[in-house]
Each structure stands twice: as C-alpha cells, then as structure tokens.
Nucleic acid binder design. Structure first.
Lengths: 203, 203
DNA sequence: ACCTGAACACCGTTCAAGT
DNA sequence: ACCTGAACACCGTTCAAGT
C-alpha cells in the first residue's frame, strides 16, 4: 500500500462517496474520484492500491457512521434490533453503496466494531459459543440480505406490481400476495423480518 | 428484444454459465460468451439486449435447476427448509453466480416459481396476507444474504482467521468467537440460521 | 434482410517521462 | 524522490459496411 501524504483515508473515502451519491455505482471510477479530489487520475494510486481498496474505503466510511454503543436499558432483543436498524439507517442515506457492502463488509474495521457489539449482546444473553456464531451469522445474512432485497426489489417498486399482474393460474400465491405486499412499507418490512429472527433466537 | 434464431435462451445461458464457471465473474464478457458460442461478438446481441439481460438469463438458468415441488409428507417448517436448501445446493455448484443473483433474482421466472411454492406453504400454515409478505421477504433476505455471506466471507476462510488474531482488548467478543467459528461447517451454519428463522415463524 | 467487423467511448492500470 | 500524463489492454456497445 502506498503511503498517504496530504490526504487521509476518510478524505479519500468521503470524496468517493460524494461521487457515488451523485453519479451512482457506474459513475464511481478512478478518474471521477481523482477529479473530485482535484488531482490527476494516477495520483489516487498514491493512497489506494486499486479500485477494490477504494470501494472498501467507502464501505468502511459509511459503516463508521453506525453508533455501536449498546442501549443498556433495553431488553436484549431490542438491543440487537437497535444495532441492526442503525446499520440500515446509515446505509439508507447512501443507497448506491448497497451492492458494495457485502463484497467489502468483512474488511471493514467499522463492521468489526459493530460485530463485536452484537456478539457482546448475544454473549450477555447466555448463548454458548457455537450458538453465538450461528446466531451472529444469521443476523449478518438477514441484515445485509434485507438491505439488498429492499434496494434491488422494493415492495413499492415495479417488480412487485408486475408480480401482482401475473396470471393467478400460474402463480396462485405469488400474484395475490404481491397485491397485499404493495401496502407494506420498508420500515415495517425490515422490522417485521428482524422480529421473526429475534423471536427465533429466544433472547 | 431481438428475436432468437438458431439458439434458445437456455443455450445462450448455458454457454455464459460455462464461461462463468471456468473464468469467474471477471471472465464473463460478451466477447467470451460469443467465442464460447462460436460466433462473432455482436451476434450475441441477436439474442440479448445487453449485458444485464445476459446476466439475468444466467441467473434464471441456474435457478431453473431448483426443484420446487413441496415434500408433502414433511411438516411445514421442513417444507420451507427443503425449498431453501435446494436453492443453496443449486447455487453452490456455480459459486461465481452468487453476486449476480440478488441483482437479477426478481426478473427470473424460475425464482417466481420458487416464491410461489414458498408462499403456498406459508398460506397453508395459516399465515395471513401481511404476515405472509413479511415472512416471505425475511426468508428471501436470509437465503440470498446467507449465500453472499457464505461466499464472500466463509467461516473457514482467511477473514475469520484474521478476526481470531485481533487484539482481544479491542474486540473482546469478536476475537474469541472467531476462533470458535472456524470449527463450524457451511451446512451447519446455513441450516442453523434457517432454523432460527423458522422457529421465529412458528410454523 | 440479416449478420458482423471496425470503431467509439469508456474503463483500470502500467510505465516511463517529467519535475 | 515524488508525481502524473501518455499509453496499453481491455470492456460494452454503436454503426455502417459487408453478404
């Protein structure tokens, strides 16, 4: 990795995030980030080894905005739910980052801090090591999977509308359920799914 | 959409999947698929509008391999679990397709058939429309989220090993749990998480 | 009319030429 | 020594030239 000089990682990441928010994932190029920073394209490589590392920096920068302090007064289940909802809130402000998150989540220090907080609650709840691992991975899968499902095929979007128009003879359950689904908001959807998972965890 | 002549969608998709399996996601280019089919690059555009549609074809082709018949003799929870595990089995044979799945799942007829089967079980179990929607979307988020987590950061991989080496002073829960996590296999992880979700559903 | 090669407008990245 | 523009090897896709 090259040595940063005048710019810090958060400065690079913030510039890349500005490009991402403005021009979407397709617009996030090394050239665009360089222009955003007012430097030549190749100068970005002073700070970042390659595009993957730039993406990882953006993901970490977004997740660094998640407050990982556990609300001590709440019951365990609510503690986990609050931590999960904070991730969703922060990511929701930068929807174009969603496809990058699962690819780079595991390299992010901010993600590790969050994971440590969640695992702390699970340990306090008395879950043994093996159950803790499975529970934590299930939460990971749900939270980041839900973000992608919400982003790529929102219930309020055209995909659901198309499902509602399907021939009920071919898809009896899907067609009728899709009509119901259009009335359910994204918050209700995310929290509802999370509650199912937490009930299964019996915290 | 251009009209297919000598080749069917499954033939195009199968060729693209061969490229994907052999050369990975980076290797999946219009040129490579054309070569695989023994035609000029632009001839692929006879069958496919653009790259996104090619990807969608591959995703549908993979998901078309999922048996969506419901095992009638099993209890509801197992029925859903079997349907979910069949997706994982089919996708597991083509790991490079994982990043494409969430992006194109909602356009796939095979995915709709699968969704209809799952929703059928949820309806039989007596879940009302709103609860059925939330439960179904939670299952979607978990199944496809778990595939991505399993693929991008497997418990047996270097990411977990790195977590295990973290300073316990910084990440008390994560470091110790990561050491436990290395002993948990991918089947146990997927099924364990699914069981938590199904228990929460109270099927 | 159908098909497809050349060409265009990009991209990430290498490398050597600038200071 | 540090920085960066030109150039390379790609990419998806347009378009006009072939048959």
């Amino acid at each position: 990795m090259p040595r940063p000089r005048s710019l810090t990682n958060p400065q690079i990441a913030a510039a890349a995030l500005r490009v991402l928010d403005r021009d979407g994932l397709d617009g996030l190029t090394m050239r665009a980030v360089a222009t955003e920073l007012g430097m030549g394209t190749m100068s970005v490589y002073r700070y970042v080894a390659d595009r993957a590392q730039l993406e990882a920096l953006v993901v970490d920068h977004v997740l660094a905005g998640v407050d990982t302090t556990v609300p001590a007064a709440e019951p365990r289940g609510r503690q986990v739910a609050v931590l999960a909802e904070r991730v969703r809130t922060v990511v929701g402000a930068h929807t174009a980052v969603v496809p990058l998150i699962l690819a780079h989540r595991h390299t992010s220090p901010a993600s590790m801090r969050w994971g440590d907080a969640v695992l702390g609650v699970l340990a306090d709840a008395g879950l043994g090591p093996a159950r803790r691992v499975v529970a934590f991975r299930a939460l990971l899968a749900y939270v980041f999977g839900a973000l992608q499902v919400e982003h790529f095929s929102p219930l309020a979007g055209p995909g659901t509308a198309a499902l509602a128009e399907l021939d009920p003879a071919d898809h009896p359950h899907l067609a009728s359920t899709a009509r119901e689904a259009q009335g359910i908001g994204p918050d209700e959807e995310f929290r509802g799914g999370l509650e199912i998972l937490l009930r299964g965890l019996e915290l």
